[in-house]
Design a protein around this nucleic acid. Structure first.
Lengths: 159, 159
DNA sequence: ATTCTGTCGATATCGACTATCAGATAAGAA
DNA sequence: TTCTTATCTGATAGTCGATATCGACAGAAT
């Protein structure tokens, strides 16, 4: 934890940014909730608990900054809110997500299975891949008994 | 074209919806620009050319309706705008996209290469897949000569 | 001290989208 | 036809996430 805060501090100062108290509080919230996919609003509320004077704009600015420096990732699950996730250290690509259309839970696949497909894309379309995103929409193991007709769930969701 | 309009009319009436002049104009715009990924605003402006009296709300309602009936698909490329795309007839999954981080062009892969991966996900995570989305972010063949350092493009894009 | 740069919180503004509501339109019933 | 009812529409106000703006403030440089 302290280790990672220090590391982020160095990444910031490498680009002439300071780890201000507000930024540190934001980073700590992100670290403490690493397994979740927090929205800016979520982060704001959590940061307020330890630093009540912080402004929403500062949270947005900090998240944007961390995202610019590729310390965190912006995610979009189609619910109209940008979510943030720590970048796995050294990971070239971010991992994949399983979104349950019934309960909304987002699980993760940390393996990257797309190697062969990427090779195929690069060759067949002359497209140099920098990153990818793969999301599966369906019914998670927790909900499978409660859903009779999965086809009905296709609906108007953004995918 | 007329064929498909008629088919959509039947899909609507099967659910007790009418193909009103406004809805028909909207459908025709979508059909005429099938290769693009139009936003609601795009559709609105195009429909206005042939039916100037139409309101923005009606376009949104029509797109929502077509989406509910799984006639079109909502897409999200992370630019804060929902885009719409015709559903390939009978296609279970929609196709994949190649997004160029330099020029923003969105190309398509109409093949579905995820079969084996889906089997793996279903087995390993006990997750029943209904749909998926796969997007590659990188440099398209048109831009590859203009971009020296692709790493710089990673930046703060939503992915 | 004074200036400059970076950062801050509050808040106005933006843009995509949705809700509301009165009027239009179409489909039945009498 | 005429009345009734449900559906649909356009205008517009409101919502909500995100961004831009602004004056204030701290620390470094001169």
């Amino acid at each position: 934890m302290e280790e990672r805060v220090k590391q982020i501090k160095q990444q910031l100062s490498a680009h002439n940014y300071k780890l201000t108290p507000q930024r540190e509080a934001t980073v700590r919230v992100l670290l403490e909730n690493e397994e979740d996919h927090l929205s800016a609003e979520d982060v704001y509320l959590l940061v307020k608990e330890k630093a009540p004077e912080i402004g929403l704009a500062t949270v947005y600015r900090t998240l944007e900054l961390l995202s610019d420096l590729a310390i965190i990732h912006k995610l979009n699950f189609g619910d109209g809110v940008t979510r943030y996730e720590f970048r796995a250290e050294g990971a070239e690509h971010h991992h994949h997500h399983l979104i349950c259309l019934h309960c909304g839970t987002v699980d993760e696949i940390t393996d990257d299975w797309l190697g062969p497909i990427e090779k195929r894309v690069e060759k067949q379309f002359d497209f140099q891949i920098i990153d990818h995103r793969l999301t599966f929409h369906g019914i998670c193991h927790r909900c499978k008994d409660q859903v009779k007709d999965p086809k009905k769930l296709v609906g108007s969701k953004v995918t």
